[in-house]
Structures are given as structure tokens and as C-alpha cells.
Simulated assay, not measured.
Amino acid sequence: MTEAFARWIVRQEGIAGIISAGGSGGTALVAPAMRALPVGIPKLIVSTVASGEVSRYVGPSDITMMHAVADVQGLNAITREVLSNTAHAMAGMVKARLASPRGAETKPAVALSMFGVTTPCVRQVIAQLGDGYDCLVFHATGIGGQSMEKLIDSGKVMGVIDITTTEVADLLMGGIFPATEDRCGSVIRRRMPYIGSVGALDMVDFGPRETVPERYAGRLLYQHNPQVTLMRTTPEENARMGRWIGERLNAMGGPGTVLPPGRRCLRPRRAGPALRGPGGARGAVRIA
């Protein structure tokens, strides 16, 4: 039912908003379909699990969750209030969206990835782009990268400046802010112009110091704050990340460039639709 609903809803036209109400099972059933809708369409879930950890339901989308307080099975003094507020909230979002002219913003949108250590760089890039671009900045905390990918897939982005690829480090080394295996997948699918770099790839993010996996005992650790501990990557881990990113670059059909800090740009060599390095090896890049 979950898969069928998700496949059905993406084929529908004219959806102005969507409301769902349920417990954990009902929420899990409807959430994938709601996540499949484009960003901007109002999405509201009334759920008995909305006061807890909801990232697995919301994911990279703009779903709003409202705590049901009481069980949504049947009407009572509590559910009447909550469901009434839900209906009015949805009506307000839909009316406001329909009243706002679409397409009034004509500036091309550019997606940028950012982390604390790359913030000064991203700010300078935005300043250089000037007022001619609508700069959409995503915090590279795993879900931030997924949100960026979803927006690219929706066709609302014209180019990507992926300065902060740190989520790849967490994906490969088991950190708490990982990318998914589909990182850069939207760029590949849409043949999007792409400028990448290696921002914060020198660190893996973990939780409090005591949560760092035992296999990393003895590594260089830095306590960023009580909730986040950073681990310095090794040359071997860096090479592994480079190969992973290189494979994604090779799959890109649009123009792509990698700009390491303080170095000349790395331009993947083209060979047909794929990007190839010296000798035609996939996953390699050369210094231009």
C-alpha cells in the first residue's frame, strides 16, 4: 500500500495540499508519498508520533507534523480541536499559495552546500554571484544534502556549487551526518552544471566523545561541542573518498569541475558521455 500510494501520487496533477492523520503505522504509510511531492506543496501529518524523532518520516521534504495528543481513532474533545486546527492550517497554506503568483521570481537558483568551516567560503561565493542569482544554501548534516538533492530533482535549481562534500566522509566512515549512496544522483539525472570541492572532507562527525566507535580508538579526535566529536581522516580514507566522488563525477553528463582549496582546478577528462581520467580510467581526474 505504501509503495502503491507513492507511485500513484506522483502521477496526479493539480494537488494543492495534502493532509494525513494516523498513528505510527498510518504515518509510515503516507509519509513516502508525501515526501515524493515537490517542495512547496503544503503537506501536513497529524500523528501520535509527532512529538518524538520524526526525521525518518519527514526526510528531506517540507512535511509539517502536528502532534495528535490523543489517538486519532474517533472524535473527542481533543481530536476535534487538533483536527480543526489542522484543517484551518491547510486551508491557510493553500489559499496563500494560490494567491501568490508563481514564477514571479525570475532569478536562476543555485544550490550551495555549507558547513561551519566552509561558511566564510560560501559567503564569498554568494557575494561574487551577486544579486543575479537566488542562492539556496544547505547545511551538510546528512539531511541537508538530501534536501538539496530533492530540490535539484524537482527542477528548481539551475546549477550546484557543492563546496562541502563532508557527508561523504560520514557515509564511508560511519559518521552521524552521512550522505546516502545517491549523493550527486540528482545532478547525474538532470545533467546539472556542477562545481564541487572537498570542504570538511578532512573530518568525520560523531556524537559525544564516548559514542565514537571502538575501532577508532587512538585516532585524532576534537570535541567540537558536547554533542559533536570530530575525527581527522587518514590518507587512506581520503583516497577512498576521492575514488567514491570520482565515480560520481564520471556518471555526470553535464559540465563538471572540482576545485580543491589552494590548487588548480581538477577537470574530469571527457570520453563520450562519461568523464574519464588519464588512460581512460573511470573514477579518475587530472589537474587541468
Rank of each mutant, 00 (worst) to 15 (best):
P260T: 05
A6L: 03
G26P: 03
V212R: 02
N76V: 04
A21L: 12
I161M: 12
V122K: 05
G59E: 11
E53C: 04
E237K: 07
A70V: 04
V117E: 10
E210G: 03
G196D: 02
V82P: 08
T211Q: 10
M241S: 06
G17D: 01
E13G: 09
M93Q: 14
A36E: 08
G92C: 08
G218A: 05
N250W: 06
C184K: 07
I195R: 02
I176P: 00
A68V: 06
K156F: 08
M252Q: 04
E167P: 03
V204W: 01
T164R: 04
V82H: 06
Q227H: 12
A33I: 01
E81F: 07
R232G: 04
G256W: 00
D153Y: 11
V187H: 03
A281C: 08
G254F: 06
R7D: 15
E247N: 14
R248A: 01
M93K: 13
P42W: 01
M93W: 12
A217D: 14
P38T: 04
P226I: 12
P255E: 11
T257H: 03
S55C: 05
P38G: 04
I78E: 02
S61E: 02
V117N: 15
R35P: 01
R269Q: 15
E3Q: 13
G283T: 06
G17Y: 01
C184S: 08
V258M: 07
A31G: 05
V30I: 15
S100D: 07
Q223W: 01
A239I: 10
R276W: 04
A169E: 06
I287P: 03
K95P: 00
R11A: 13
S51E: 10
G14W: 07
G218F: 04
A36V: 08
V125R: 02
L266M: 14
M114F: 04
L129F: 11
C184N: 10
A288P: 14
T180V: 04
P208Y: 02
G23W: 01
T2M: 12
R267P: 00
N85P: 00
A87C: 14
T141A: 10
M173C: 14
A109S: 14
A271D: 14
N225Y: 09
A16M: 07
G103L: 10
G253R: 10
P101S: 11
N250C: 13
T48Y: 04
L230Y: 09
T229C: 09
A6W: 03
L98V: 11
T118G: 10
R215T: 05
W8M: 08
E3I: 12
D205N: 15
C184A: 13
Y216E: 02
R7H: 13
R282I: 12
V110G: 01
C184H: 13
L275F: 12
T86H: 03
A127I: 00
S113A: 15
M158G: 14
V168W: 03
S55M: 11
S47G: 07
P38Y: 02
G253F: 07
G199N: 06
G159N: 02
I152V: 15
R11T: 15
F115Q: 03
R282F: 12
L172V: 07
I161L: 15
S24G: 13
G26E: 06
S100N: 09
R264M: 13
V69C: 03
A288E: 15
Q73Y: 09
G103Y: 10
P208K: 07
P120L: 08
K107V: 08
G159A: 15
H67I: 02
R97F: 03
A89D: 02
